[in-house]
Design a protein around this nucleic acid. Sequence first.
DNA 1: AAGTTATCTACAACGTTTGTTGAAAAACAA
DNA 2: TTGTTTTTCAACAAACGTTGTAGATAACTT
Lengths: 152, 152
Amino acid sequence: MKTPEELTELFRSTGRKVTAQRQCIFRVLQGDVTHPSAEAVHAVASREMETISLKTVYQTLHDLAELGEIVSLDVGTGMTRFDPNVDEPHHHLVCRECGRVRDLVAAFPELQIPRGAELGFQVGSAEIVFRGLCPECQPAARTRRVPARAGS
Amino acid sequence: MKTPEELTELFRSTGRKVTAQRQCIFRVLQGDVTHPSAEAVHAVASREMETISLKTVYQTLHDLAELGEIVSLDVGTGMTRFDPNVDEPHHHLVCRECGRVRDLVAAFPELQIPRGAELGFQVGSAEIVFRGLCPECQPAARTRRVPARAGS
DNA sequence: AAGTTATCTACAACGTTTGTTGAAAAACAA
DNA sequence: TTGTTTTTCAACAAACGTTGTAGATAACTT
């Protein structure tokens, strides 16, 4: 995601108006690595602007997604999550206990689909979700690596 | 997923009662490869039992998921999808146009997470979602294989 | 500074999923 | 079979995250 200043310029140059609410949201997203939900963004923004509405947050997040400055994610936690990290190719770690999401910066360049297995699909992208327990949700066990079993 | 007869037995042996509605749902799921939503299961079941309620469908699907006979999936199509194929390790192809979901039966043994990249997560499984266009939603282009770009 | 246009807040509605209730049916025993 | 107990059923309403609508408000242009 670009800086709040660059986003201000980008919004203006694409015919969008720049408001205090939007700049507030830009700042909230800036450097956020928690993949916040709209509600979470709203909660943080509200600390700075008490009257900002949830609808405004949704709208601005959609605008940012449309401009490619953030990406909306559905990793099965019940609500859409937003990821400002669009420059670095990565996948996601999702805690099955608390829903925390973290980036996993790694390229998996060999995801070749066996011939015929794509069933006529014209595949354009692949997302990998690694599920497990985040550090905070682990009982007392130790970290361990995992063979690439097929998921669900 | 087991056969309707085996599921009947399994439900009884786990203290659940077997009703005509549940057996109807068993039959609907049997051999279904479309990853139906609860609503879709309800629609098919309704053709056989006009009065069956959506709530009953949800409840039975949850029971089946709890017993490991089906898996609930969230692939970003707005509703939970249910997959009766739990015996064969696989991933999923999702049409970004119509939301169709198909199994992709293939192991990707190269999904090793680089040391340190798991950020303390204790990873238990990995799911890959391949997004693209299903045969019905393709304009006139041809199928093509895809480099493993990082997803959203 | 005034006009034009987009955005804001507040509210209501949407679709999916879940909680609640009395009625009905399944399982079990006699 | 019949009765007794317990679960599940259907119908209703509510929860949740998200989107639509409206008039009021604020940003951009001249």
